[in-house]
Design a protein around this nucleic acid. Structure first.
Lengths: 338, 338
DNA sequence: GACAAGACTGTGAGCGTTAACAATAGGTCA
DNA sequence: TGACCTATTGTTAACGCTCACAGTCTTGTC
């Protein structure tokens, strides 16, 4: 398989010499050009194999102006949601023959997003997926952007770019209606941080469901997605006697709520029902197992690549699509009839 | 800021013309070459700004033979450990001015690893980090590899490449000794899948600690890292009357164990003490809060980049380092004196 | 005031590939 | 048979940058 260490790797010209053809013919074989005689092709392939030749994608990218690399900008890939989405993106991209270059942001202010996009644009990516669940990120996308096809995951109403998202409001509605259908008078809500579009969508769905049922919406409790913030919200809720149902904006916070309830002797679901959001793998084993709203992160990742590739390869780099993935309710033991 | 859509982006020659200098002088300014007159530099920078010029990194990579991109091969970036490690890698790499290209593997057989490495090598990465916690992956690394500096995270004894890892055996020892110090006669173990080096390291540490204390090591229960497998192990353990202490090989399985114990009315920590591994953010809010072994994934990620860059930039591409990060015990409410 | 040693700038080649065009061979059709 | 097509191959020129080398312009020194 060639490639003696220390010697410079073979290039197309070496293969051409070995096979007794021109470098262009080698290029044709590599690019599966139809007009190459079978015999010639065989000679070239043999030479490639003999020398252990691998084509230089950097040189190729220089002349074709396509790197076959997609950029992904994401916020905190340590969280289950973004991690799963990025995973789906990566799988779909690789299946389509694209590389993935990742930038994980710590803070998601406009400057950070701008830097990340510039950074990726410099590298010559053919397209960018921004997992931009925050309003600020989505806004940053709206003004800046330069000429690379872009799709935003959870990008809100942004009409400058294509968007793929889960219908968060629908999720909030499903959770709330589930609780109401169990006979609860009203449903409390532990919400996510206010800059997050997902948090707002869930609040909106929750509020809409309550309104439609003619119920009063209590003041939502603030959280920041962390179990700790859920725990603190849970302590507040535990001290209120009229709380019988809580919709928590993600499973991690729901875990904190459950913990606080356990400490205070508040039985779930006997005295209070709890619904989470995300369906992380752990939630089935919470105590009690958590009723939650399932988001198909994998589908979101796959779809975002599909949309992006349509823009890149379909020759409509500025096309704008909007693709909404529906969430679903997963019923478990943390909710019960009042 | 220049860059009229539709027109081809400006290149170095355009900047040179605008500034009235040669393209080489522009290159010098960009590369911070010392011998450029301040006035000239200013003219060039002004022209760059005016035209909105951005240097083409692909062309640069072609001639320098350095892409300033590092490849990362990882297995299931949905899990907290790999996700956190990759996050640390990404942050450290970007801080050092490198891009990160990611390949997430579904299955980690030799062919998969080989493909991933080839794929990245084709792309022209300057170095590769393989997050290879499985024995098979580590072995795959050992034979194949071609000429790109490589570092393995959790790569076992592989002596073909540099390795950065957490001292898993030490973690197992810490967990076990903690339980023994609380007066438990022996410690049961729910282990991870047998192909995983981390699982084996933890088993080894557990066994060693028991041996040193002169205790019998019970047969470990098999798990696959998932909460469900922990749950099943937990059901078995709940039915044994002589179990008072369990060391579970990760926090997710520990959650499953706790769930099973709760269902069977086994009090933790009153009747059985439980220790996990990883210190995921949720574990503090399990019921009860989980005593666990903390791994500094972030440090592992950072160190792996440091080691890799030393190989790449230090001119010793085949140097082999071994860097071990110590774990630590985080005491919480799931363990108590017998 | 001439000369060497720097400081600064420009010229040309080449990185490894693909695109555009040219050239050759073999055959078809009137 | 000769013009004319088509299949196949080769030649040359980019792509946008950096490297090596060759200039030119300042200084400082005696």
């Amino acid at each position: 398989m060639g490639s003696i260490p220390g010697r410079r790797p073979p290039v197309m010209a070496d293969v051409a010499r070995e096979a007794g053809v021109s470098h262009q013919t080698v290029s044709r074989v590599l690019n599966e050009h139809p007009n190459v005689r079978g015999e010639t092709r065989a000679k070239v392939l043999e030479a490639i194999d003999k020398l252990g030749y691998r084509r230089n994608l950097v040189a190729r990218a220089l002349v074709t102006r396509h790197s076959r690399t997609l950029g992904v900008v994401s916020f905190d890939t340590t969280l289950y949601g973004p991690a799963s989405t990025v995973y789906g993106i990566e799988q779909a991209a690789r299946a389509a023959g694209y590389f993935i270059s990742i930038v994980s942001l710590k803070s998601i202010d406009r400057a950070g997003v701008r830097d990340a996009l510039d950074y990726l644009a410099d590298q010559g990516v053919d397209g960018i997926v921004v997992v931009a669940p925050q309003r600020s990120a989505a806004q940053a996308l709206t003004d800046l952007h330069l000429g690379v096809p872009t799709v935003a995951v959870e990008g809100g109403e942004a009409d400058e770019v294509s968007v793929v998202c889960v219908d968060q409001a629908e999720g909030g509605r499903l959770a709330t209606e589930h609780l109401l259908s169990l006979g609860h008078e009203t449903v409390w809500h532990v919400r996510g941080p206010s800059d997050w579009l997902e948090a707002e969508g869930r609040v909106a769905g929750w509020r809409a469901a309550l309104e439609r049922a003619g119920r009063e919406a209590p003041e939502p409790l603030a959280g920041d997605w962390s179990p700790r913030s859920g725990y603190e919200a849970g302590r507040s809720l535990a001290s209120m006697t009229d709380v019988t149902a809580v919709f928590v904006a993600n499973d991690q916070m729901a875990l904190g709520v459950l913990r606080a309830f356990t400490e205070r002797g508040v039985q779930v679901p006997d005295r209070v029902s709890v619904v989470g959001f995300d369906d992380v793998p752990e939630s089935e084993f919470f105590s009690p197992p958590l009723t939650t709203i399932r988001q198909d992160f994998d589908a979101v990742g796959r779809h975002s690549i599909e949309v992006l590739l349509r823009q890149i390869e379909g020759g409509e780099p500025h096309a704008r699509e909007r693709l909404v993935v529906p969430p679903s309710l997963v019923g478990r033991a943390s909710t019960a009839r009042i």
